[in-house]
Design a binder for these strands. Structure first.
Lengths: 228, 228
DNA sequence: ACAATAGTGTCTTTAAGACATTATTCA
DNA sequence: TGAATAATGTCTTAAAGACACTATTGT
């Protein structure tokens, strides 16, 4: 696999995942406590070395990591950016290909001593440059939030329109007008009603209909919730 | 530099640049003919191995490549994505961190046998997966074009508003309404007149004023040229 | 009935598109 | 003066925001 004569030394190569979810109306990121050096005992992003015999590419490598940390696949994953340099990893010149995964809360494990969800605005000190990687994930989600269905992928398969609006509001960091929001949902045919049962929330009040994403495209030509 | 014991073999790590420019009203990409294997004689993107003793990170590595190919720096550079896998490079499992650079035409060298500009819609067969990397660059530029000043960075320091509109039109692949375009430029205070001389184009006709970018932000909350 | 939550209608405001008009230069 | 190009004005259309209103449930 490595027959050719390198002119230059090769860097350490890893993948890291910013796994985001929505819990109690707050955006959270999954961290794990590092069991070994470097940064043993510190919180960090799930990740690992590329395995050339197992991984078809870095996408495959991150899929392997996600399967270990978040059960099966099927949720939204996209590449964020690649972080590199001689100092970010004390073991030497390294490259980390970072990915963002948007996962419904119930697909993630419950908190333990070594794996926990943290509010994205209340992170502990992180290993490596993982704070910058999380920041890149948040920036991506917030940037694409207004003109994509990414916020919806933080919810389960089905959801109420109130849930959906809440997801957008949390991602975008501001309140949205219900009337405008639903008008756009309708005009863009983004959601469709699920023939199944109804659902009620917070005690009394009228129960809300249940919806699911209708179209495949995850980005579109108008915004949900006004300008970015 | 490589004292720590690897559990897994390291991949080959390179950087590649999609250098885009505007020439004769067409979007073009700089390619070079590969002087040696692999893909000797084929056209490919400028790029190279990471040099751990010289490069502070992959951004530094691409800066080195760009200085060699496009003179000094100072133009727009941003990371695109990372391409990886066991087959894209016949030498073994490899990672390429791809960057996009937007460079005014006069900053680039004139065509030679080994370095040439190609229209982005008339590319020759490319080495490695460089066709996919170019496609990623175009997608990024087109995606960000409508709500950023990226198209302006394809021009020189100063330009006429007609030049600027042409740049947006080429990037977005459609015509824009001059009135709307300029209204937005004004409302967003994106350009400012240069106190210097005037300039005339294409024979007779009224000469046009000369402008330059006014504000630093490269993206903003409204689009130039309508919806994406 | 009324509190609570879900969902809709309508008016206003703002931005974009279409397109006509004015301005300034050269031949 | 007229052709050519630059620059601006105005009307129409479309979308977003504000906010009042109706609808459906439980107690």
């Amino acid at each position: 696999m490595q027959e050719f004569q390198d002119r230059y030394p090769r860097p350490i190569a890893t993948v890291d995942a910013v796994i985001l979810t929505l819990s109690d109306g707050r955006l959270q990121v999954l961290l794990h406590r590092r069991p070994e050096a470097p940064f043993s005992g510190a919180w960090g992003l799930p990740g690992g070395f590329i395995r050339q015999d197992e991984d078809h590419d870095t996408e495959g490598a991150i899929g392997r990591v996600l399967r270990e940390k978040a059960g099966t696949s099927g949720f939204w994953v996209e590449q964020l950016a690649t972080f590199s340099g001689p100092v970010r990893d004390p073991r030497g010149w390294s490259i980390s290909v970072a990915y963002m995964a948007l996962v419904p809360r119930d697909r993630l494990p419950v908190d333990t001593d070594t794996v926990r969800l943290f509010d994205v605005d209340a992170l502990p000190p992180l290993a490596f440059d993982h704070a910058a990687i999380v920041a890149a994930g948040l920036e991506r989600l917030r940037g694409k939030g207004a003109y994509s269905t990414l916020p919806a992928t933080l919810l389960g398969e089905v959801f109420t329109l109130k849930d959906l609006q809440n997801a957008y509001e949390v991602v975008l960091g501001r309140t949205l007008d219900t009337s405008s929001f639903r008008r756009r949902l309708n005009e863009m045919r983004l959601v469709e009603e699920v023939p199944g049962a109804e659902r009620r929330q917070t005690g009394s009040g009228r129960p809300s209909k249940v919806f699911r994403l209708a179209r495949d495209p995850h980005t579109f030509d108008r915004t949900l919730g006004g300008a970015v």
